[in-house]
Amino acid sequence: MATRAVARPTRVTGGLRLGALVDRHFMWIGLAPAALCLLLVLVYPVLANTAYAFTNKSFLFQDTSFVGLKNYFDVLSDEVYGFWAALRVSLIWTFGTVAMQFLLGMGAALLLNQEVAGQRFFRVLLLVPWAFPVIVYAMIWRWMLNDQGGVITWLAVALGLMPEPVFLLGQPTTALPAVMGVAVWYGYPFMAASLLAGMQSINSEYYEVARIEGASTWQQFWHVTLAFLRPVIVVVLVLRTIWVFNAFELIYLLTRGGPNGATLTLPVLAYNLGWQQFLPGKAATVSVLMLLVLALAAIAYFRALAAQREVEHG
């Protein structure tokens, strides 16, 4: 009896302890599955990729070994890999595309924020580019830009903008702007939708006060609209910058990085090194360098945001 009397409370105490432990850490226990999934699908690939960058791994030959920083030296110093040219193209492509998307998105959002007839229709229309898979619109744009009967080329010649049909995707000087044009067409609705949502959350009283104070339309835009939109702007610019910098499909489908490397961005270079040259070590190196570039961009953006907040809050 005595033994049972002792043993029973021990089990109960153990159960209570476990229960208390669960209670205390319930949040972490609940989050654990999601965190585990994130570790598997996000952290592991990044770590594996980073590790590959220090090896001479090849998909073709089995003898993988550690090579230290050799891949970095090779990619950064040997012009046969074309890293610096691809970085230059990537930066022009990213900042040019994001800037154009932003300006066009802002213009569209300002227009759609007005009380005009058919406002809903135009808002739906804004989403049309997103309704198509990239392969479909890339092929359509390729045809429209073709010099042998493409409608855009035909129109440009008819309007006297081109003396003769020119395949814009086929010229080193025009290929990148043409690809950027297609990317702007596809991406500006995201900017517009995000900015429009931000604009609609601004209390109209601020505009009324500004008008009473004698602010012009431009001053209202600058001191009210832009001031309140700043956090949204920073977020959409960071997101679009990351997406556009990493964009692969559109460029690959339109030009495959050509002509003569005019649209060869870092993701296309990484793809070519990994899947055409069977060199995942070199491809991983390029993607780690891409990660560094993006990290710099993200830090710069968030510092700007923090500085802005400090100014706002004194």
């Binding site: 074309g82 010229q171 002509p259 490397g261 060869l264 055409q276």
Partner: peptide, 15 residues
Amino acid sequence: TTTPGLPEMMQAIVL
């Protein structure tokens, strides 16, 4: 299949 490759070499010559 180098990057740039034979097509790009031809494009550099032609364009």
